[in-house]
């Protein structure tokens, strides 16, 4: 074989091939990368740049350095919206996980009309937030809403729902005659109403993901456990739950990220926007308010954006670290 390549030639060819590989790989990601770069990364970096300037009603006023950040941390409304956001996340993520897991397990059996049920749970997912807001505002209306009418029919009292700024702990304690101070009141009923609507809207999506996860669990695992005499709780505790942990973790991370970013729900559903006494003013709404309600300061809004981004990023990383230790693959 006279055409045998010398080691040097071989190396050259390999290198050329590798360079070609890199070039073609870059070509593959180019369309996506170009768009992400132009329409996400650049705008986002621009927004972060804004945070060092005073920009009022869209017009540049001047450089303020870290001024926006300093003012931000001194603004009690900021801290209030941060805690509102945390309550909202707490009020949506765990209930969403447990409710959807519960229904997914109910649906993960050979029962009749399965498709119909799945369809019904999924309807809110495909419905737009605009439509959801329209429907639920009408239902939750305190004076003529159907929910209060039904509650009254059941002998329970009417509630203020979206216009109720009192904390739910305060309301519960109040109903048994205990007076809780405002700071221990917990999230407002208005916020909890939003969390309920949000859970309702997202339930079907999470159910489908859990269903997928459940169907991925090999039947032999259950059979083996049954032979060992496991009851249904034990089956859940020692087979379903650990085998499902990647799915649960996925749902957990995604719904945390999404609920930290909640905006349109608040924007479309609460009036005054931000809820009674600002009790539904989550961080993204606070950001929006700072940037778009006159005196609109885009700089201040961008400072909030950066802080929010750091919070979400940190949380995601922490969640990943924890999960690496805990999640069973």
């Amino acid at each position: 074989m006279s055409q045998e390549l010398s080691p040097q030639q071989l190396r050259q060819r390999m290198q050329r091939r590798k360079r070609l590989d890199v070039a073609s790989a870059l070509l593959y990601i180019l369309p996506a990368a170009a768009i992400v770069f132009t329409f996400r990364l650049v705008p986002i970096l621009a927004a972060f740049t804004f945070s060092f300037f005073e920009i009022k009603m869209g017009a540049l006023v001047g450089y303020v350095g870290l001024g926006h950040y300093l003012k931000l941390f001194q603004d009690p409304t900021f801290w209030h919206s941060l805690s509102t956001t945390l309550w909202f996340v707490l009020g949506t993520v765990p209930p969403a996980i447990f409710a959807s897991l519960f229904f997914a397990m109910l649906l993960n059996q050979k029962i009749r009309a399965l498709g119909l049920y799945r369809m019904i749970y999924f309807i809110p997912v495909v419905t737009s937030m605009v439509a959801v807001a329209v429907i639920w505002k009408w239902i939750l209306e305190p004076e003529i809403g159907i929910l209060n009418y039904l509650l009254e029919g059941l002998g329970a009292g009417r509630l203020g729902w979206l216009s109720e700024s009192r904390g739910i702990f305060q309301m519960m304690a109040g109903s048994i005659g205990i007076n809780l101070p405002d700071w221990a009141g917990g999230p407002s009923l208005a916020l909890i109403s939003l969390a309920l609507v949000n859970t309702w809207k997202g339930l079907g999506y999470n159910i489908v993901i859990f269903l997928a996860g459940l169907q991925n669990i090999p039947q032999q695992q259950y059979e083996a456990a049954r032979i060992d005499g496991a009851g249904s709780w034990q089956l859940f505790r020692y087979v379903t739950w650990p085998m499902l942990s990647p799915t649960t973790f996925y749902v957990f991370i995604m719904s945390t990220i999404v609920s930290f970013q909640t905006f349109s729900l608040v924007y479309l559903m609460t009036s005054p926007p931000g809820g009674p006494e600002d009790s539904t003013k989550v961080l993204v709404y606070y950001l929006f308010d700072k940037g778009f309600t006159p005196p609109a300061s885009l700089g201040r809004a961008s400072a909030v954006a950066l802080v929010l981004f750091i919070i979400i990023l940190t949380l995601t990383i922490v969640q990943r670290r924890v999960a690496e230790k805990r999640v069973h693959y």
Partner: peptide
């Protein structure tokens, strides 16, 4: 970087996008 883009809510990049 792609994944990080998912963590930024829409109102943040609305105005810069409008400018672009």
């Amino acid at each position: 970087v792609f994944l990080a883009m998912m963590m930024v809510p829409e109102p943040v990049y609305l105005v810069p996008s409008f400018i672009i």
